[in-house]
Structure formats: C-alpha cells, structure tokens
Nucleic acid binder design. Structure first.
Length: 593
RNA sequence: GGGGUCGUAGUUCAGUUGGUUAGAACGCCGGCCUGUCACGCCGGAGGUCGCGAGUUCGAGUCUCGUCGGCCCCGCCA
C-alpha cells in the first residue's frame, strides 16, 4: 500500500480533453473497471466528477504495468501520467473525457477494496435494503451522486436568491415543545426535568412568526422537520423544508418571491426558465374539476358533476346516493370505448383501493350507449350527459357515486391512472399551479370538531371577524399551495397577527382559553407586543428534488434515508439503549427485552 | 391498524401438476490475450432456497406462522 504523500490531483476525472494533450497530470479516484489485455491494461478511473481511462503499457513502463495487474474494483488510486490523444477511431463518445487517455508513469495504490457486495454501475437494479446498508457504495453510482450534486445546486440557488432579496438565514431550535394538532411528534425526554419532554419540530412555524415579531422582517432557513407518521414513497420521517417568513406583506408578495425563487432553482439546475406568473386556481375549482387540491394539469380527463342531471334517474345506486346527500361525477375517457372487460375490472379494482364500492361505465358506440345501466336513463338524461361530457362515439364514461369526498378521491386517482395508462402525461413538462382560497377549517368527524386545514395560525379572509357566526366550513383562509405536476411542493399563508383573532380561531378549533394559554401563551403574549402583519411559505426540498431528478422515490434524493419501517439499515437505527440511559431519563421500560 | 407484492449463488433472476445432483447471466478466482471501453476466449469455485412449524414416501414448489424490502389505504394541521 502506498501513501498519498505530497501527490495532489491536478484535474478531476471529468476535466481532461484534447486541450490537455502532452500535459503531465495527476488523477485520483476509484477503479470502476479494468480491461486487462495481458499486455496493455485499461482502467476506468472514477471520481465524483466523471470517468477517465488510464492506460498501463509494459513497453512504456514495465514496473508500473506489473504493479497494475493486481488492481481490482473500487481500489483507490493516485496516478501520474501523460495525456494522450486517442486515435480517431478509438475515441469513446460516451465519455466526457473520451477524446483522451492518460498513460501512467507512476501508480500509487492508496487502498485496496474487497469485492463490493453489488456492482457500482447503472446496469443492474440492486435491492433497496442492500443499497441502504451500503449507502456509501450506492452513492458512488453516478446517478445517485448526480442527484446530490443537483440538490446542492438547488439549495445554493435558493440561498443566493433569498440573500439577494433581503432575507436572513436564522436557525431555530430542534429541541422544542410538543404542540397539539398536526402530526405525531418525535419526543425527546429531558434528563434534568424528569417527566418532561421536548419534541422535534414538525416545522419551525411558531419560531419564524416570533422572528417576525422580533423585527427580523425576512427570514429563511433550510431546515429539517420531523413527523412521526407512516412512510410513503414521497414521505420520510425527517425531511427538509425551505422555510421562509416575511413581514408587512400580503399573499401577492409571498407568491411573487416564491415564483422568483422557484425560477432561480429551475434555471440553476435544469437550465429551464419557468416564467412567472404561474397559473392560479381556487380550491373550490380544483376540487370541482379535478377532485383534489393538487391537480395535475398537464392533461385533461376532468371531472364532470352529473348530480343535477341525474337527480331524477331510476338507477337505484345513483338515486340512493343522491337521496342521501351524495354526488355523481364522471370522467370522459376519450377514445376508450374499446376497453375490455378486464380493463374495466382492473380500473374498478383500482378505484376500490380508494373507497369506491363499484364503478359504473358506459361505452359510447355509434348507435348506442353500451352499458348495463343505460336502460335506467331517459333520452333526456342521456342527452344531458352527452352535452355535459361532450361525449362522442368511441368514448368511455366512468362514474363515481358516493359521498362527495369519496367521489372526488376515487375519480381523481382514477384520472391519474387513466392518464398513465393512456400515456397522456407529457414528459419534461413542468406545470406550476397556485391553489388559493382554501377553507379555513374542515369538520373532523372522528374528533367531532373543526380542525385547521392548514394550521391554527392561518389568517381567515376578511369576514373572519364574524366567527363563529354562520357555518365555519364556509370560511376561506389566506392560505396558498404551490402545485407542480400534481405534487404539492409548497404551502403557506398570511398569519394571524392580532391576539383577538388568534383567540377566536383557537376557540373555533375547540382549543379552550386555558389550553390556549398553557400551550400557546407565549405566542398570544407576543401578539400583544407589537406583532407586524406577516406571512410565509415552506417548500419541500425532497419532493422538489424528486421532480427535478425524475426520481420515483424521495429516498433517491436523500443521502441517508430510512426504510418504510423508519429504520436505517446502515447504522441499524433505531437501536436499544443501555438501561442506565433510561434510568437517567427517569424512564421505566415496560416492553420485552 | 389494514391490503397487495417480493424474498433462491456475491448481484439480478429462472425454476413446469410436489419427484434424480437447484440453473442462467453478471461478478469472483485461475489461465491466455498489446487497443479495449459493460473487452474477448478457456477453465473453476460458489446455495441453511429469509426463518420456524405443518401436510407428504418426498417441499425451493402446498398450508400456517414469523421476519424483512417495496407499493398502497388509514395516518401525514
């Protein structure tokens, strides 16, 4: 084994080209592959930046060539050599450095490597568990390394943009207090305060509001947030937000700043310029047309409400649904009348995953509406449906009939599934959409109370002063979400900055004066001491990077992510602790060891 | 808490109605090879079929349980 000594690389493995011919260079990196011809040996040397072919020729340097025979995958090298132009027919257009190669005159083996447990190339899919167990090997793969590079560039673009716009980057505590509402907290026991617990922040929400009250005016932070809920392909227990808050602003200011920031990110990463202003749509319109508050507007297949049209129909399922206060909506799947029985069964099964108890359909033929349920509709009802859906021969109509929430969820998911199957979603399209005018609260039937749709500090729109008169569900909030290709990538609101209003909202949410004082007393007090009007927004970095890199899982843009059971196969966290540690924390275990 | 799916060589996978000695490719080891670039040719090693029960003359294959990966519902203000 050799030492690095005073050898320092002169170039990375992506830098050398025709301009460097005849130069003596020093490269460092890992052995990606060796091609040993008995005589000449070729090694693809890899570092974070790229790949360069290095050559060992016995006629040029017999001793170095002999030494190179032992090289194996993932050995760590430093080499000194001369850049040679490759003969024209031996250039490798697949390599950035493919015009040249480096003929090695000095080889230092800095470390050997056992045969890696999986190949460090893009040609074989490796199981997630193995990848996470050897994440440091997984991250050597250019695809993964490039994801981290792109993430770095995105975050730097954010910092640069916000710095240029008068923002201060300020850190907020990771050890804070648990608050009601929202997700389950990760708790941290306090050693010096037995029986008391910190919570890891679900977001820095209250601290950033306090920073506004402190007069910081414009704050941002690229910050970890923690939520102890079950994982998904786009959800990790710890995730990163671009969190910001501004004083003396309204919705338009936040939207403008956000659009500028997103634009900077896209320019610096993909080289794409998504020119503001982005489209906007009210929550009500999104729910009506797409059945979701984060519609993917890259394709059609919109939902059409047929409740009125079919109010008098004799089809018992529809009639009963409407009589019980439910709704009927439909999607016109254009040109899909040729779907087989199996296609329709598959779609019905898919719909069932989201709560559908069935899925009625009609195939529009030249001469008839082909369906088991056509006979229940009058000519007038058929005409009305034809008009509402713009139905033409060759189309397929899919129905949802249930409570409004169920119909919307089922049909919005069905819409996405149809678009995937019919390949209606254009690639490399980035469709931004602001959703505005959210409801302030929604009724939680399980808890039998109203819950904040966004969070309890979101300001109501102007008539909010009338609370609790009238139907709380009709109140709109000053919240906004940014949706990109059907993914919620950011959300925020103008906050309540007056104590009276905050107390009213707490009351509406069933948080009594006593609980409010105990849990949010510090906020209410701060609101009494000169709180400026303020608002903000937070963007999910991981989800944004998922879209920018085209990844199918959030794990591919996080250096060390967790499995779906929230474990880390690399460190084996979470792990048992010494009994003494628990004792110090005044915790007594009651689980089986 | 629930549903689905997968688990076989280092890796990715195949393995027929339950039936002889569990295969392939890549990788690995050895040999040959001076222009390859996912080099090539020849040879070789490598398996508690996730784990545990059960059914059976016989289980990689069937049943039950269990552990783990992934996807989803619930959950995620």
């Amino acid at each position: 084994m050799d030492t690095l000594g005073s050898l320092r690389r002169t170039h990375t493995c992506s830098q050398l080209g025709a301009d460097n011919v005849d130069q003596e260079v020093i490269l460092t990196g890992w052995v990606l592959r060796r091609r040993d011809h008995g005589g000449v040996i070729f090694i693809d040397l890899r570092d974070r930046w790229g790949i360069t072919q290095i050559v060992f020729n016995p006629e040029y340097n017999a001793a170095v060539h002999a030494k190179a025979h032992q090289l194996r995958s993932e050995w760590v090298l430093a080499v000194r050599g001369t850049v040679f132009r490759r003969p024209p027919d031996m250039e490798n257009p697949k390599l950035q450095t493919g015009a040249i190669e480096v003929l090695v005159s000095e080889l230092r083996i800095l470390n050997a490597s056992e045969t890696p447990p999986f190949p460090i190339d893009e040609y074989m899919e490796v199981s997630d568990n193995l990848r996470l167990q050897y994440r440091y090997l997984d991250l050597r793969r250019p695809e993964m390394a490039n994801n981290l590079v792109l993430r770095h560039r995105a975050v730097q673009a954010v910092r640069s943009f916000l710095n240029d716009n008068g923002f201060l980057e300020i850190e907020t505590p990771m050890l804070t207090r648990s608050t009601p509402e929202g997700a389950r907290d990760y708790l941290v026991p306090s050693r010096v305060n037995p029986g008391r617990f910190y919570a890891l922040p679900q977001s820095p929400q209250l601290f950033k509001q306090l920073l506004m009250i402190a007069g910081m005016d414009r704050y941002y932070q690229i910050v970890k947030c923690f939520r102890d809920e079950d994982l998904r392909a786009d959800r990790q227990p710890e995730f990163t937000q671009i969190d910001m808050e501004l004083s003396f602003v309204d919705e338009e200011d936040i939207i403008t700043i956000s659009e500028g920031m997103i634009r900077a990110v896209f320019r610096e990463t993909l080289g794409i310029d998504p020119a503001p202003p982005f489209h906007r749509m009210s929550y009500d319109e999104a729910m009506r047309r797409f059945g979701t508050d984060r519609p993917d507007t890259r394709f059609g297949l919109e939902l059409v409400d047929l409740t009125e049209v079919l109010g008098g129909c004799t089809f018992n399922v529809f009639k009963t649904t409407i009589d019980n206060g439910g709704i009927i909506k439909a999607i016109n799947a254009r040109g899909c009348a040729g779907f087989s029985r199996k296609d329709l069964d598959d779609l019905t099964d898919y719909a069932a995953r989201f709560g559908a108890r069935g899925m009625a359909w009609i195939k529009i033929r030249e001469n008839e509406w082909q369906s088991p349920i056509t006979k229940f509709f009058s000519d007038q009802e058929i005409d009305s449906m034809r008009e509402a859906l713009a139905a033409e021969p060759g189309d397929l109509i899919l129905f949802g009939a249930d409570r409004e929430a169920v119909v919307n969820q089922v049909l919005s998911e069905l819409r996405l599934e149809l678009a995937r199957r019919l390949q209606l979603i254009p690639a490399d399209t980035y469709d931004f959409l602001w959703i505005t005018d959210f409801p302030l609260v929604e009724y939680d039937s399980a808890e039998k109370r109203y819950a904040a749709l966004h969070h309890p500090f979101t300001a109501p729109q102007e008539n909010g002063g009338d609370i609790p008169a009238g139907d709380p569900a009709r109140l709109r909030s000053r919240a906004y979400d940014l949706v990109l290709n059907g993914n919620e990538i950011g959300g925020g609101s103008i906050r309540i900055h007056q104590k009276d209003m905050q107390e009213k909202i707490f009351a509406l949410l069933g948080i009594g004066p006593e609980e409010a004082r105990e849990k949010f007393g510090f906020l209410l007090r701060a609101l009494e001491l000169g709180a400026p009007p303020h608002g903000g927004i937070a963007f999910g970095v991981d989800r944004l990077m998922m879209i920018l890199t085209g990844s199918s899982s959030i794990r591919d843009v996080i250096a060390f992510p967790k499995t779906q059971k929230a474990t880390c196969p690399l460190t084996d966290a979470p792990a048992p602790v010494e009994r003494k540690q628990l004792t110090e924390l005044s915790l007594r275990p009651d689980w089986k060891e």
